[in-house]
Design a protein around this nucleic acid. Structure first.
Lengths: 360, 360
DNA sequence: GATGATTGAGAAAGCGTTTTCTCAATCCGT
DNA sequence: ACGGATTGAGAAAACGCTTTCTCAATCATC
């Protein structure tokens, strides 16, 4: 016959009643508001502990207008790159008391925008990984997603920071490495045409070409998966190149596997490079020469940018310069969005060597 | 000078006013409540679209007492197994309109309980992967986490369903496979002592031993990472075994790599098996014989169990039997928790063969 | 054409906090 | 000691939505 017996859990009012204070006071105590008598504060805390009271997050969220949660939207949770970004964001955010809601579009890019919007409304901000989304769509979506941090993408017209990887530089380093070893006929086993990071690699290679006129460089259209790499062997062999740059470590490993089956020896007959330096790259046979991308750091940095946005220290400006990354401020249309750029590091392992003498 | 101009976004009352109806009606329309005149419904919908109104999830959450979100707590987001579970849960949940909040304890198991509780309060339920948590702690935690689904763990005293992988059966299959090939001296390169799934493998091996008295089987303490596998080579060689079962694919790959460096040929000199069948397992050289664990399916099934719980169809009982999994109902203390058991499948690849003739 | 059953929509009461507003009770300086 | 400045805590108004309650209007029934 109690007023309202088995309502839900123990609420703030239960504590208030039992401690003989008002709701407001309990709230103040719970939130560390100092303007409350130490005596009372202590009593309230004791009562709360005794009742095992824990504030209901939903109620707080509504009242405070924030959720302490950010969304991370990725095109494919199965992809090691996005897994690593997610991990980086998640751990860094956790440090600051934020949680992460995941939104996996499962490669269905038509869903991406809806998913991102959905996530945004549930959270205080969104970290968007959308490598395939059209620039126009992104630009249109951006305002409604703010605060948003872009990963490996950029857009004007919004003060959305980006954290990017300089894939162009990375692939140039790899190409230079191969040339240094003596290779003159190179091939790039390309990624998906719609992939933004593929575009950056391509641009980097264009630059490379211009500064290395004597080098032959073919681009072989391909994909981004293990299988794609495996299946690219025919085209690779046909290309006549001796130095092969795969789109990423996954395709490089697929290619490696396929070449191995054909009896083509790496690196004796052919050199192969990957990209990303996923954990497995060092354990392939031979171990993969690759361009290491500090992708977890990218996730962490994405969180830092987000935190900046959330703390309203806004206005762009120079954010904390990330550890090994160069930071750069691009003059944006409105706010001057911050861009962090991470540069891949060349990691030389066993899969590259001088080309066979006959090859010349 | 408007009443309350730039409050926040467009809210339900804006729509109500503009459409000339009450808040209640707008709510009803937005929630597909049929008891509203089609004419009015249409008008409301039009107004909502015009104003780009989208209901504020936090408000809904509070009013409905649910969040359409579940938490997934994992000990390590870097571990492929948990990544796969997460992916399975996330995608399956998304199908049913639920989102996933991730809680990564980063291997800090002392944080696990707090993290799980935290997640639970923000969500409608929790999927808990806590292979290292003590049984006692788990049991104590369980009630406060309900509704909860356990992955690769079980607990009485709560009606919490489990979805498990029969690691014991899997390792027995691997051992049998090796024996069938002619190996008589086996070694199990163990996982972390505190790992529950390691315990299951161990138990399976005990069973195996009993039914194969003539076979020698050594257990070599080790860990769960690539590095651990790599570093186990000494012990493996010293064991004198010709058939090696690694804790998982990761350690198997590390071992493979290390053996390769020592000039020990797999499978000519030594056979090696993994466990899990992670995507990379088929691309190692030689390709890894392993016990395939449908781990994404585990995640999916975890979601189904959760959905069952959430829909309150509760009471345990026989849930939908998962595709290739055996389903089994254990007689629980109270509700009779449902347990889904997935059995690994033996996948024979190139890393196993008959032992060298000399070995005998 | 009067009466009871239905349908449909508005008013208002939550949902569980936070936070502004108010006011009573101290404290300070002179 | 007295007025003004502080401090501290309670009352009440959000926060944005859902849902029960209530009642007016429409419908079917005899």
């Amino acid at each position: 016959m109690a007023k309202r017996a088995r309502t839900t859990r123990v609420g703030i009012s239960d504590v208030a009643t039992k401690a003989g204070v008002s709701l407001a006071t309990v709230s103040r105590v719970m939130n560390g508001n100092l303007s409350v008598d130490p005596q009372i504060a202590k009593r309230v805390r004791a009562t709360a502990a005794e009742l095992k009271y824990l504030p209901n997050p939903t109620g707080r969220n509504l009242a405070r207008g924030k959720t302490d949660t950010i969304g991370v939207v990725v095109p494919d949770l199965g992809n090691p790159t996005f897994q690593a970004v997610l991990r980086g964001v998640s751990r860094a955010a956790a440090q600051d008391g934020y949680r992460v809601l995941i939104a996996d579009s499962s490669e269905v890019s038509s869903e991406e925008a809806i998913l991102a919007g959905e996530a945004r409304r549930r959270c205080d901000g969104v970290v968007l990984c959308a490598p395939r989304m059209g620039a126009a769509e992104l630009e249109e979506l951006a305002p409604s997603l703010h605060p948003m941090v872009l990963v490996n993408r950029a857009t004007n017209a919004t003060g959305s920071p980006s954290v990017m990887v300089d894939y162009g530089k990375g692939i140039q380093d790899l190409a230079a490495h191969l040339v240094e070893l003596g290779h003159t006929r190179l091939a790039y086993v390309a990624g998906p045409a719609s992939s933004a990071s593929h575009g950056l690699r391509l641009a980097g290679l264009e630059t490379f070409k211009r500064s290395h006129p004597g080098i032959e460089l073919k681009v072989l259209p391909n994909g981004s998966t293990f299988e794609d790499g495996y299946n690219s062997a025919d085209a690779v062999v046909a290309s006549g190149a001796s130095g092969i740059m795969a789109f990423n470590d996954l395709t490089a490993m697929g290619l490696l596997s396929s070449l191995n089956e054909r009896g083509i020896r790496v690196p004796a007959d052919m050199s192969v490079t990957g990209f990303d330096d996923i954990p497995f790259a060092r354990y392939t046979t031979p171990a993969l020469t690759t361009a290491a991308v500090p992708i977890v750091d990218v996730g962490e940095q994405a969180w830092r940018q987000m935190r900046e946005l959330l703390n309203g220290t806004a206005g762009g400006g120079t954010s904390a310069t990330p550890g090994q990354a160069g930071s750069e401020v691009a003059a944006g249309t409105t706010a001057a969005p911050t861009t962090s750029i991470f540069t891949p590091t060349l990691v030389v392992r066993g899969s590259t060597a001088a080309p066979p003498a006959t090859g010349r």
